[in-house]
């Protein structure tokens, strides 16, 4: 009962934040027809669906495990789309090679084999570490504070996935902490939006200024 009281609001908060970012990204795609904004839309819609399934899993009774796993798969898909967007760009400034090898180095540590949920969390962790490193590398070029916040938020999501994975070893010890860190990560990613004028961006959704480009 205590878990539901804590998990439900956290998942709903995560759902709200990711749905909001996804909607803003879609308004950008509808306006300027940028493929990267479409990928961000897919990413955050998947993550929002994941949060909805995780919240629904709390009330799914005997299907709880299956619904929760489906939610984690949806979120891993979202992380994949963010990582995919990063993999399509190139840097004039290349991050140090050993820095980019971090996700590969820890792969052996996190890839488990005892459950689908376990495996999905591991994949999410690797994707998030990759995306976080790419975003921090972008920050090192642009020095934009908002990019640093997004990179830090993604890093927090990676920590949350690692703690959730650790929860399999020590059941019940880190799950709520992981969920809190995950929502804090999304919160950190949401902060930079205050300067984008959300109302104006969403208001353009129906105008389709750049349709046909």
């Amino acid at each position: 009962m205590l878990e539901i009281l804590f998990e439900l609001p956290m998942n709903l908060l995560g759902l709200g934040i990711s749905a909001f970012i996804g909607r803003f990204a879609y308004s950008g795609y509808a306006t300027v027809a940028s493929p990267n904004l479409l990928r961000l839309t897919f990413a955050f819609v998947s993550i929002a669906i994941g949060f909805a399934l995780l919240a629904g899993g709390l009330f799914a009774g005997g299907y709880s495990q299956a619904v929760t796993t489906a939610g984690l798969v949806a979120q891993a898909t979202g992380y994949f789309f963010i990582a995919f967007s990063h993999s399509l760009k190139s840097f004039d400034f290349a991050p140090p090679r050993h820095f980019l090898l971090v996700p590969l180095a820890i792969t052996g540590f996190v890839i488990p084999g005892n459950s689908i949920e376990h495996l999905v969390r591991s994949i999410s962790f690797i994707l998030l570490v990759y995306v976080s490193i790419e975003t921090i590398a972008s920050y090192m070029q642009s020095k934009r504070t908002s990019t640093l916040m997004i990179g830090s938020g993604l890093g927090l999501l990676a920590v949350a996935e690692l703690l959730s994975w650790y929860n399999f070893i020590y059941p019940g010890s880190f799950y709520l902490a992981a969920l809190s860190i995950k929502v804090a990560g999304f919160g950190l990613m949401f902060v930079p939006f205050s300067k984008f004028g959300l109302a104006s961006g969403l208001g353009r959704m129906n105008s389709q200024i750049g349709s046909g480009l």
Partner: peptide, 21 residues
């Protein structure tokens, strides 16, 4: 002109994620 205004706004959004529009 409206497109350019929107482009500038969403360019900032994408760059926040370290991406290009």
């Amino acid at each position: 002109i409206e497109f350019l205004r929107a482009y500038s706004e969403f360019k900032g959004f994408a760059e926040t994620f370290g991406l290009r529009v």
